[in-house]
Simulated assay, not measured.
Amino acid sequence: MKTRLRKQAPGHQPSAYVYQQENWYVARVEESFKAAGIQELADLSAADIEPTPRGIRFSADRATLYKINYTSRLLSRCLAPLAVFPCRHTDDLYSAGKALPWKDFFIKGRTFAITADVVNSDITDARYTTLRLKDAIADYFTENTGRQRPDVDTRNPDVRVDVTILDNRAIISLDTSGEALHKRGYRELSVSAPMQETVAAAILHFSRWDKKTPLYDPMCGSGTLLCEALMAACNIPAGILRGAFGFQILPDFDPVLWQQVRKEADAEITEIPEGLIAGSDVNPAAVTAAKTNLMGLHYGGRVSITQQAFLDIPELENRLIITNPPYGIRMGRDRDLRFFYKCLGDFLKQKCRGSTAWIYFGDRDYIKNLGLKTAWKLPLRAGGLDGRLVRYELY
């Protein structure tokens, strides 16, 4: 059943914010795994879930909103709509923006940043859209509170505001996640071109890992796939290391309820046996990074990491093999990797019998060089890469 939106005319002072009146939010998620994000929201007790051109709309009470932000592995942000209104000109945006009581979100010293997305509308310039809403917020403080306008901080703001204009309808929202949810907090060390955490979580989701079959990454890099596998196997909330969330500055934030949600989620953490998750990499710096990142998580010491080339691994039989091999960005675009991928294919054929391999190709052109029959293939576009996730059944 679709959630009905209560539209507000520009300049109207709302009695309550839209998210309070109508109990709906918008989740941002990579388009390639939006369907998986919808399933995750359903699993986390969201209701009235609908895909939209720019995310996923859903309904949730406060406890569910907190839990989604704290535990979601696939979503990147959750937005709470403050105002929804027709918007054909930036003057409409300015009027509606200045009418919102921004003092509800800003205490002295808090900074802010605005992101804008403009699609199929009379307004076409996202950058100018951002500037107009920034002016509206500044003028609200000058004209209504006598307080100094808050400063803009695009790198690490306290308040993140989102404006989306689609088909001449604008939604001004507050980001309830704060920093993007893929920033788990465990990545203390890194190597070049690390995989984004939500993409790694999506790969694990598509693999349908049963958390019983031993999992191995023979080119683990800084360990993102292994960290996400550990968190999934142990039921570790994705946000357990994060210091704060955007929903904590909402005017109806309930700190007691938040602590209860967090306590209940943390109580679900379970142990894993030694040997369930392991990996290796030829690069000693990558091995150090992976070990360091894993040690920041519960039971990270139970994940074995060794330094060796995949060709030197004796065998990987009856395993779930998940890996993100090097491609142009990670090894230099002047490198010819066709022979590398041929060797990888030979290794999988000769030493990995009885296993299933899930390989993420950041450059899909190398799929043919592996020399193996694909059992399943999925476009997985993320971080500017038009990649492919491919499954191989190894007999």
Rank of each mutant, 00 (worst) to 15 (best):
K351Q: 13
H182M: 04
A170E: 05
D254L: 02
S222F: 04
L181D: 00
K349P: 01
Q20M: 05
K108M: 09
L100A: 02
L372R: 09
F141A: 12
A290H: 00
S355E: 05
D122L: 14
K263R: 14
D92Q: 09
D281H: 07
A286G: 07
L65F: 09
M331D: 07
L337T: 01
K368P: 04
L44Y: 07
H12Y: 11
R262S: 06
K103E: 15
C234V: 01
A233Q: 02
T224Y: 04
T213C: 03
Q248C: 04
A201T: 01
K263I: 00
R319N: 08
D162L: 06
M331S: 15
A16L: 12
Q13E: 14
K183L: 14
L276S: 01
K103H: 14
A244G: 06
A180E: 12
R57F: 11
N144H: 15
T130K: 14
R149E: 08
E315A: 14
L297I: 02
I367E: 15
D334E: 14
T154P: 02
R88D: 13
Y128P: 02
R160F: 10
L5A: 10
K98N: 07
L225N: 04
A9R: 11
F310N: 02
E197P: 01
E197M: 03
F340C: 05
M295K: 11
K368F: 09
P237E: 05
M195L: 15
K98M: 10
Q20H: 02
I313G: 04
N156V: 12
K377T: 15
R330Q: 13
G383Q: 05
E179A: 13
A285C: 09
A60M: 07
E264W: 00
L294M: 08
E274Q: 13
L344D: 00
S72L: 05
Y299A: 01
D139H: 11
L204H: 06
V29A: 09
Q148F: 09
D135N: 13
F106T: 10
C227A: 13
A16G: 11
F247W: 09
K2Y: 07
A47V: 09
Q308F: 00
R338G: 10
L5W: 08
